[in-house]
Each structure stands twice: as C-alpha cells, then as structure tokens.
C-alpha cells in the first residue's frame, strides 16, 4: 500500500535549487501532515527509494535523519516508522476518557499500572490540587498505551471519602471512568483541563521511552461528578510524538 503511494508521491525536482535531501524531507513531511502517511506506517528502505529516484542513497539517509530530528519518524527494528500522531478532534471538545480516545485513533488501548498507594495530603498539598482540606487519596500512576506503545502517563488523586475503600477494589489496569460509574454510581461529567508544553523530567521520560527533556504536552484535569463535586485531580504527560486538535467555530 505504502510503496504504491510512494511511487506517485515522493518525487524530486532536478531543476530546483534546494538539495535533494531537503526536497525529500519536505515531501514526506507534507504527506505525514496531511495524513497520507499515518502513525506507524513504514517509510521505504533508503536504498529502494534512492533506486526509484535515481539518486545516491546518502540523500535519502540524510532526509530521514532530518525527519528524525524533527520527530516525524523514528528508527525501530521494523525500519523507519512514522511517529507523528494526531488525536481526533473531540479530545478537547468533549469529555473523552484517554482510553476511548486511543481506541478512536484505531489503536488497541491498554493500561499499565506503575504505582498505586493510599496517601494522606496535608491541607496545603490538598489545596494545591483543588481540594478543600487535608484528606486521604488513592494515588495511581498509570501508563496508557496504544498498540502496546506508551502514549500518555497519567497520575490521578482520588479522594477516599468519596471513593470509600477504593484501594480494596481497584485493580489498576481498568479504565477509570467506567470503574467509578460501575462501583460508585458517579460519572465524570465535567472536566476542566489546562495544557502546557513542557520538557519531560527523567523519571517520567523513561516510562514513555523518551529522552530526558523531550518536549511533551502536559495537562492537569479537574474532574467533577453529576453533583458538581471534585472527584479526581489528574496530571498527564504525553510522548513527544503525540498531537491533538481543537477547532474554533466562528
């Protein structure tokens, strides 16, 4: 499928002033941006593309290096793989669980629990998260994956006066929203999200298979139930190849 596309789409212009590697890089980048090449697609072997374009293999290698530098592709055991990924439109337009958002991308979602423990936060610490007073929380730190690739790491603070004995029943790998609806009859009605672009600290980067300092979208979420109570504080970090869209309608 991809080989077929490439035959038609990656070409170079020998009259143009710009070097071949820049031309190839720009062509592939545009094809990734408009989603002709999609997440986890494989680019052709450098020698095959070079043969097709009748140029030296080093031009293609150089183009691939430039694309890697810009985080559009990654070299893996499968070859040069597209890492660029866009979340579907509604992630920041509608209250969607990360688990469902990953599914909506056509990826197989899974959750790995890194840590879960009961903690008590002081009044000061609890207030920093938006809760009124000191209390006990179940703190969970989990990795969300698509097709077994880490995409997002998310910490949640669940107040145990609302979720009584949650530490006894919560396994750690189940989607959170469905769990609290089933066990507590509460549903995550509204979510207030604030996002930032940050450099990943090393202790988070290692779980996402990223280098320390890699760029990431970080988001804090305050989740409110049907009674307008704050029932969850969440802090997430994405891999650097994770993108999302938001639409402004005028």
């Amino acid at each position: 499928m991809l080989d077929h596309k490439i035959l038609e789409l990656i070409s170079i212009d020998r009259r143009e002033k710009r070097p071949y590697d820049i031309q190839i890089k720009d062509r592939i980048k545009a094809l990734i941006l408009d989603q002709t090449f999609y997440y986890q697609d494989l680019l052709p072997e450098a020698k095959d593309l070079a043969l097709l374009l009748l140029i030296d293999k080093e031009w293609v290698n150089s183009a691939y290096r430039l694309l890697m530098k810009e985080s559009f592709i990654k070299k893996t055991e499968r070859g040069f793989e597209v890492t660029y990924l866009e979340l579907t439109n509604y992630f920041f337009d509608r209250n969607t669980a990360i688990y469902d958002a990953i599914k909506a991308l056509g990826l197989m979602p899974s959750i790995e629990c890194i840590d879960q423990k009961v903690i008590t936060l002081s009044e000061h610490e609890a207030q920093a998260l938006g809760f009124k007073e000191s209390r006990k929380f179940l703190h969970i730190n989990r990795l969300y994956k698509g097709n077994n690739r880490p995409l997002i790491i998310l910490e949640n603070y669940l107040p145990m006066d609302i979720f009584t004995d949650i530490d006894q029943v919560f396994v750690g790998t189940e989607p959170l929203n469905a769990f609290i609806l089933e066990h507590y009859g509460l549903y995550a009605k509204d979510s207030h999200r604030v996002t930032k672009a940050v450099n990943l600290p090393s202790h988070i980067a290692k779980y996402l298979n990223e280098q320390e300092g890699a760029p990431s979208i970080s988001s804090t979420n305050h989740v409110y139930d049907q009674h307008q109570r704050l029932i969850d504080y969440g802090l997430s970090h994405s891999t650097s190849s994770y993108y999302f869209q938001s639409m402004i309608k005028l």
Partner: peptide, 17 residues
Amino acid sequence: YFPGEFTEFEVTVHARP
C-alpha cells in the same frame, strides 16, 4: 510558536450522558 512554560490553554469539556 508559544513558549511552553509561559503559555496555558484551558477548556472545560462535558461528557455526553
């Protein structure tokens, strides 16, 4: 291009019942 540390975007999203 917005400087990451000095830019925040917020939204409140609602679940569909």
